[in-house]
Structure formats: structure tokens, C-alpha cells
Design a protein around this nucleic acid. Structure first.
Length: 691
DNA sequence: TAAAATAGC
DNA sequence: GCGGGCTATTTTA
């Protein structure tokens, strides 16, 4: 570990120090990134925090190496097997695509900062941040120009921007304004999902239909009404699912406030948009996942998720690979929200590190007290208690016990918590937290739980698995905190209707059963025109995007080769970890029984069955080729068994998407469909009208 | 299944 | 001299 400096530490050590707020996520134009990076590095270097970051990074590098090795060990047979698995999953996921709904994601621009400015207009135009010297919740746009960002410690921010004005957080205020915005949202979707104080998802399908206007028009109207009601601006993304809608609006919030993007309910438009989109923009894919996907498979754009599908299926769990593949397909939650309930409640505090047992116990008692109070407020009790610790060196640990009876009193909590702490004792801590989960269903809320869970998880697995991501759960672009969720709830819901907005950043991805949709006969009354497609970042290569003004441009695809990982295979033969039960893995070349039909690419180049030569980059051809053999085989088998359906069906979908995305890679690209927008041309349009 | 560790927002 | 609260997934026992 610790070696992280060695390799990259040359003249510009700070370049290798990446944190959430200094990375490429934002498109902060006027920012001197080099300087920001340097300052952050200088300010952090040598600290315990920094050292821990280095440890974590080293660990991730190690993990990447390990996965690389696993990938390299996949035999050609494994790969062809997983290629089939991936193809099949992609087809199944594709079948769940739902284009009949219009989702709108609203994101209040620099929410906390904007609210503070409302109540103190003298702040207007000055760089300001909400938070403390140790942590900022958000920064206004003036401050962002200096590189100041949410989640950045205040002391670093001050270094970047000496005139930065610090305003302490005041959740009451934010909750109040959040309530005002929700009143507006309610008019467009009474069941809107609140992801945090400043973010919400609205299913505007119905309004659009009733009023006969487009999602873009609704977004315009909603935004201006929010502004009328609150004096605050917001950004909106309109798309056929939540995942896409969030990507659109979030990008806006970071770059240019007060704007909106619309992605039409059209498969091609979605695929085009998603294709060149950096995976990091997707909710649920953070720094670590990005690093792993990039480091192990060379994946940096969403379309590459599909191209590397076989590897993903081979090395990740079902839910993870499903999530990745659906990202590649631009799928995301489209279901009507079902009510979700809190699954745990917790309280934690950071303090200056101490190893004094007595004071640690005291802290523990305080926290137990706070937690218990919060639980009383909501009438909760649970039987699993988890103690969270952060050592002086920033290492995080947790210890849990599951009890026979449900507890909620601070005495009970403290009693068991003390036992947990005692076992760790000689220890220096900077944080202690307690969490209670495993609620008594009666109190936690409706029984919906188990059934729903399994249902969604297994039956529906179709869509947006894993990583709470998919959409929600997101606590806002700015750090949103939860403890005011309580207040939020009370404060807000006294409104009229019972809204089923999710008060707890609950992830509610999982689309509902595929079947319910009207299949392919989706009516298009909602197909809105493209307003603009967000180009988001460095990767200018949005393949084929059609913009309303008819601009277009093409770019070469960002594609890389099938990465090194795939080359060094073919040698080792090993049973893949999880999912290849169907074949007994023997010598790949063994002919004789059903294995004779197993196709794989010798040296990642030649077909094992007929010797045809196809480089790995010819994805589509390969697909076709293996399909040919598959068909051949099935046909043969069919004279005995009776399953032919699989073949034909299999070919149908892939043809389309695979074609659309790989075309570009071999031949240049078919100009026919190619219309690209330079990133910034998108933003130019709707931004900053009323700010 | 339960617990611990991760990851992400 | 780097927060707080919550969820979900994976790994391990």
C-alpha cells in the first residue's frame, strides 16, 4: 500500500491524487483544474486522511489486478460461453425496455446555497458555500469557479478561494423551501418520488397526455412555476426512464444551472445518447466502480458495457452484470413507485480522535440517546444493532448483533452497544455510530416488504439491478443529509394529499414487470422532440445524435480494442466461478459430444470450429458467425429435440443494437445516422434564462 | 442466515 | 487538518 507515491510521484504528484470533488465529473469551464488539484493535494498531503485514501487506492489497484488475472485466465471456451450468456441477458433486458413513460428529474440548482442567498441577498454574486470548515454541503456557482465543490472540506475551499463566505447549514430553511417545490411537483405527479430535499422524480406521462404537450414543455412550465413559488432555479431532465432523466439534469446542475434536456422516447435516441456517455455519469457508478471497469476491461463509455458483456458476465455477479448491461442499453426505472419504507435508522458523530475508554463510552451513550430519541419519534424498534467505528486513521469498521427481542430504549441500545465496543477496546476513534435495523414490520410500515423485495429481485430482475443506483437513493448532488428527513416528513406532508414521495433516499429502481407494458405498440403521443442532448464531457463522440435543429456531426467512436484482457486467454482453462454450470469444462478442443459445437476464438482470432479468421474488433461479425454455428447446431439437434424458438428469437434483437454500435468501429461510421453535437452546443441553448 | 465490508448518493 | 444518514450488494463465516 503506501507505495502509491512511488510511481506517480514525479514532478506533479498531485495529478495522481483524485478525489470526488476534483475529478472529471464536472465540466467546470473556467476552473484552473491544475491549480485546484495541486492545492487539494498540498492541503491533504501527509494527513491521516490522505494516508487512508492512499491505502484505499492501493487496495483498489490490487483488486483490479486480481480481476485482470481472472479475466486473463478465462479460456476461449469460457469466453464464448459468457458471450452467449451476455447476449442472452442483453436480449432479455432489451425485452423489458419501456418507452411509453416520460420521466422528469428535477434538481434544484445549488439548493442550500440558493436558499441561503434568498434569505440574505447580500450574498448574491459572491462566492459562498454552505457548511463548515471541515465539510461543505454545497457551494454556489461563483465559488465553483474557484474549484470549490460540495463534499470538499472548508479549509481547502478557503485556500482555493480566500474570499469564500461560509454559511452554516440550516436544514429547517431547506426543508421549508423543499416543501414549496414539492407543492409544485405535486401538480404534475401526485406520486412524485422525492430523492432528497432538492431532487425529485416525476412521472409526467399522464400530464403530457392530458394536456397534449411535450415533456419539454412541461419541464419549462414546471421550472418556471418553481421559480415563481420559491425564487429558486432548477434544472430538469426529461427521458423515458429515471436513470436517463437524472443523468440529464445532474449534468446541468453541475455545469450550467437553470436548464433542461430532453431525451425523446425513442430507442435510437437513447442508444445514441448513452453510447458515448462516460459511465461515471450514471447514478450508481462512482469512483471505485469507474476505476475497476476502466482498469480491468478498459470500459469508459456506456456502450462499451455491451461490448465487454461477456467479461462482465464472467466476472461479476448476476445483479452487477445486469446493472452494467442495462446501463449499456440505457435502461432504467420506469415503474410506478411503490411505497418503500425505511429499513434502518442510525446516528453517528465525528469527534477529535481519542482512545480514552471513558470518553468513548460517554460518546456512545450520547449517540444511543440520540438514536433512541429518533426512533421514538417514528415509533420504531428493531432487533439488529450495528456499531460503526472510524479509527483515528480513518479506517471504518462495523460490528453487529441480532437480538431476540426488539429494542428501542436508549438503555437497551447502550447496553448492547457497550458490549460491542468493549470487544474493540484498546482503540483510538474519531467516529462512533449506531444503527438499528431489522424492524418490527408493524411499525416499520406496511408488510409490503418481503414479497415485494423478492418479487422485484427475482421476477423482475430484468432491469435495474444492483447499485441502488439506477436512480434515486441519490441524495442530491449536494450532500443531502438525512436527519432532517424527520422534519421533512412532518413539515411537508401536512399538505393535503398523501404523497408517496420517498422520504428516505430509498432506491426504488426495479421496474415492474415487463409484461404490463403495452409491448411494442407503444403509442407515441409522448414522443417529444429532442430539445438537446446533453453532451456531457470529454468524450465528444456521441455517435449519431439527432438534434432538433438538424445540426449534426460525427465523431470517431471512442472504442478501444477488445482490450488486452481478451488476448492472453485461450491458454488456461478453468471453471468460471459462478455461472457456467451447463458445461463440464474440459479441453476446449475436445470433440465428440455436444462440446464439438462449442465455438471459441483461437488466439482470440480464429474460429475453433471452422477456422474462419475474425479479429476481436469485429464484434458484429463474430456475433453473426457464432450465431451461424449455433443455428447449425440447433438445427441438427432439432431433428431430435424440439426447441428452435431460441435461435430465431435470439437473432432478432441483437442485430439491431449490435449493429448500431459496432458499425462504427470497423468501418468508419455510417454517416447516415451520424449526427453529433459538440458538447457545448447543447448547453448554449437553454441555460441561464432566468437566473 | 448473519455479519462485515464496500460503494454510492 | 476531511460529515452524516441511508440503501444495496458482495464476501465470508
Amino acid at each position: 500500500m503506501e507505495d502509491s507515491e512511488s510511481a506517480s510521484d514525479n514532478q506533479r504528484p498531485w495529478q495522481s491524487y483524485h478525489t470526488v470533488y476534483t475529478n472529471a465529473k464536472a465540466g467546470m469551464e473556467g476552473v484552473d483544474k491544475e491549480k485546484v488539484q495541486r492545492v487539494v493535494y498540498e492541503m491533504s498531503k501527509g494527513s491521516k486522511y490522505f494516508e487512508n485514501e492512499e491505502r484505499k487506492e492501493a487496495f483498489i489497484r490490487q483488486k483490479i489486478e486480481h480481476m485482470r488475472a481472472r479475466a486473463a485466465k478465462l479460456s476461449a471456451a469460457d469466453l464464448s460461453h459468457y458471450q452467449k450468456v451476455a447476449d442472452k441477458r442483453i436480449l432479455e433486458l432489451e425485452a423489458t425496455r419501456e418507452l411509453s413513460r416520460i420521466w422528469l428529474h428535477v434538481d434544484m440548482d445549488a439548493f442550500y446555497a440558493a436558499v441561503e442567498t434568498l434569505s440574505n441577498p447580500s450574498l448574491k454574486g459572491k462566492p459562498m458555500a454552505v457548511g463548515s470548515m471541515s465539510m461543505l454541503s454545497t457551494a454556489n456557482y461563483e465559488a465553483r469557479k474557484f474549484g470549490v465543490r460540495a463534499a470538499m472540506p472548508g479549509f481547502i475551499a478557503r485556500k482555493l478561494c480566500p474570499d469564500l463566505i461560509f454559511v452554516p447549514t440550516d436544514f429547517k430553511k431547506y426543508t421549508y423551501y423543499s416543501g414549496l417545490t414539492r407543492e409544485v411537483f405535486r401538480n404534475y405527479d401526485p406520486n412524485f418520488m422525492a430523492a432528497s430535499l432538492d431532487e425529485a422524480y416525476l412521472d409526467i406521462t399522464k400530464v403530457c397526455k392530458e394536456r397534449g404537450i411535450t415533456g419539454g414543455e412541461i419541464a419549462e412550465e414546471l421550472r418556471s412555476r418553481v421559480h415563481e413559488e420559491t425564487g429558486l432555479t432548477c434544472s430538469a431532465g426529461v427521458a423515458p426512464n429515471r436513470l436517463l432523466a437524472k443523468v440529464l439534469s445532474t449534468v446541468l446542475d453541475i455545469n450550467k444551472p437553470n436548464g433542461q434536456f430532453v431525451l425523446p422516447n425513442d430507442r435510437m435516441a437513447v442508444m445514441t445518447f448513452i453510447a458515448s456517455l462516460p459511465i461515471r455519469k450514471i447514478g450508481g457508478i462512482g469512483k471505485v466502480t469507474e476505476n475497476i471497469l476502466k482498469g480491468v476491461f478498459g470500459i469508459s463509455t456506456c456502450e462499451e458495457m455491451l461490448q465487454k458483456g461477456s467479461f462482465l458476465c464472467a466476472l461479476f455477479s448476476r445483479s452487477s452484470s445486469d446493472f452494467f448491461l442495462s446501463v449499456g442499453l440505457g435502461l432504467g426505472g420506469t415503474d410506478t413507485p411503490m411505497i418503500r419504507f425505511r429499513k434502518s435508522i442510525s446516528s453517528e458523530r465525528t469527534f477529535s480522535a481519542t482512545e480514552d475508554a471513558a470518553s468513548l463510552y460517554q460518546k456512545l451513550a450520547d449517540i444511543a440517546e440520540m438514536l433512541s430519541a429518533d426512533m421514538q419519534k417514528e415509533g420504531l424498534s428493531g432487533r439488529t444493532l450495528t456499531l460503526k467505528l472510524k479509527t483515528a486513521s480513518f479506517e471504518v469498521r462495523s460490528r453487529a448483533v441480532t437480538l431476540q427481542k426488539y429494542i428501542c430504549s436508549s438503555d437497551d441500545i447502550l447496553k448492547h452497544a457497550s458490549n460491542l465496543l468493549k470487544a474493540e477496546l484498546p482503540i483510538s476513534l474519531r467516529l462512533i455510530g449506531l444503527r438499528v435495523s431489522h424492524f418490527n414490520e408493524d411499525k416499520a410500515g406496511v408488510p409490503v416488504d418481503h414479497t415485494q423485495k423478492t418479487l422485484t429481485k427475482f421476477l423482475i430482475s430484468g432491469d435495474a439491478p444492483k447499485r441502488t443506483g439506477d436512480d434515486q437513493s441519490s441524495f442530491g448532488s449536494d450532500l443531502s443529509d438525512l436527519h432532517f428527513m424527520n422534519e421533512k416528513e412532518t413539515t411537508i406532508s401536512l399538505g393535503s394529499h398523501k404523497t408517496c414521495h420517498y422520504e428516505f433516499g430509498a432506491p426504488f429502481e426495479r421496474n415492474h414487470l415487463s409484461d404490463i407494458d403495452g409491448n411494442d405498440c407503444i403509442s407515441y403521443e409522448n414522443a417529444c422532440e429532442i430539445d438537446r442532448i446533453g453532451e456531457l464531457s470529454s468524450h465528444k463522440t456521441a455517435p449519431t445524435v439527432k438534434i432538433d435543429d438538424g445540426k449534426e456531426c460525427t465523431t470517431k467512436s471512442p472504442k478501444k480494442e477488445l482490450s488486452r484482457v481478451s488476448e492472453e486467454d485461450s491458454s488456461v482453462q478453468r471453471e468460471p466461478e459462478d455461472g457456467s454450470p451447463d458445461r463440464s469444462n474440459k479441453e476446449p478442443s475436445a470433440l465428440g459430444n455436444e462440446d464439438d459445437y462449442k465455438l471459441f476464438w483461437v488466439d482470440n482470432y480464429k474460429c475453433s470450429l471452422c477456422g474462419a479468421e475474425l479479429p476481436s474488433s469485429f464484434v458484429e461479425e463474430r456475433q453473426e458467425h457464432s450465431d451461424f454455428h449455433l443455428a447449425e447446431r440447433l438445427q441438427k439437434e432439432e431433428s431430435g429435440t424440439g426447441s428452435s424458438a431460441s435461435i430465431s428469437r435470439r437473432r432478432v434483437m441483437p442485430k439491431e443494437y449490435i449493429g448500431s454500435q459496432n458499425r462504427r468501429k470497423k468501418h468508419k461510421s455510417s454517416p447516415a445516422e451520424g449526427k453529433h453535437l459538440p458538447i457545448d452546443s447543447f448547453f448554449a441553448k437553454k441555460s441561464g434564462q432566468k437566473s
